[in-house]
């Protein structure tokens, strides 16, 4: 579709700018992925989301 950026593309570029926070969040989950519960990595996720909201 020419002349129009799909929202998912915008989303992907914004996420790409937060690789450091994304990696910190991923590490927190992967550290013990047999025992994941809701809001297990809340602080890391909020940091990732803040970065994402700034870069979007």
């Amino acid at each position: 579709m020419p002349g129009r950026t799909r929202p998912i593309d915008k989303f992907a570029t914004a996420v790409g700018k937060c690789s450091k926070e994304g990696s910190a969040y991923g590490k927190c989950i992967v550290a013990d992925y047999h025992n994941v519960h809701k809001d297990k990595c809340m602080t890391e996720f909020l940091r990732l989301k803040d970065c994402f909201l700034v870069s979007v």
Binding site: S19, G22, S23, Y25, G26, I29, V30
Partner: peptide, 15 residues
């Protein structure tokens, strides 16, 4: 959900 996508990308990359 956007939150889930955001989280899944980080986990995919790490795992």
């Amino acid at each position: 959900q956007r939150d889930v996508l955001l989280a899944a990308e980080g986990i995919y990359r790490e795992l």
